[in-house]
Computed example of a mutant assay.
Amino acid sequence: MTRILIVDDDPHLLRALTIALGARGYQTSPAPAAPTALQAAATTAPDLAVIDLGLPDLDGINIVESLRGWSTAPIIVLSARHDETAKINSLDAGADDYVTKPFGMGELLARIRAALRRATPADEQPLITTAAFTIDLAAKRVTTPSGEIRLPPPPRTGRRAGVRRGQ
């Protein structure tokens, strides 16, 4: 199960995010303040963090920097700060994305899915093996017990094959 750390001092938003993400199969660790957030992150390393910048005890950028010091998990900043400087500072501190409040839950969920997709390591050997054949996706090769199957080249795009420009 994917673990998401949610850091926001607004109890209503924290509860709404916890419920919405939990309903979609994510395990959440809600944290209303910096010490709770850092303790939760250290206890159960999150797969992704959603962090508000405007916390009462510490600026969210400090949490981003702290997490980035030991974690490669994606970080999405969720903030009411709309100015470009806040966005730049967050991204430079190590955030992977920035969503401004108010926001749509659908958009936030899509950004979470995208960040998790990018964070998932690719298979080192992308092979599909069955009893009848093996497909090597990296080499674009199909082999069977009787040998390699020659595949046709991919279709050409743009202009039609065999027709030159100006004809």
Rank of each mutant, 00 (worst) to 15 (best):
D52Y: 05
G60C: 05
Q39Y: 00
Q167N: 10
L17Y: 03
A122N: 07
F103S: 07
A41W: 02
A95K: 11
T143D: 13
I76G: 02
P102H: 05
R160K: 12
A131S: 13
Y26T: 03
I63K: 08
A93S: 12
I63L: 13
P46T: 11
S90G: 15
D59H: 15
V64C: 14
A122C: 06
Q167E: 14
A40E: 07
L38T: 08
T120K: 15
A40H: 11
R15C: 01
A20S: 15
D97H: 12
A139H: 09
R118T: 04
R24E: 15
A16E: 11
L78Y: 03
G162F: 08
P121V: 05
A93D: 09
K87N: 01
A45M: 11
D97G: 06
T85F: 04
R3W: 01
I88H: 10
P154C: 02
D9M: 05
T43P: 00
F133K: 03
A23C: 07
A20Y: 03
S146A: 12
R113M: 03
D96W: 02
F103W: 05
L17C: 06
R113N: 15
L116K: 10
Q27L: 12
S90N: 09
T72H: 10
I75L: 06
A41Q: 10
L17P: 07
G22T: 12
N89S: 12
T44L: 11
A161L: 13
L109T: 12
L127D: 04
T36K: 09
A41G: 07
G158T: 03
T120S: 12
A114T: 15
R165H: 09
L67W: 02
L108Y: 01
A114Y: 01
R81N: 07
Q125Y: 02
Q167Y: 01
G106N: 13
I149P: 03
R15Y: 06
L91P: 07
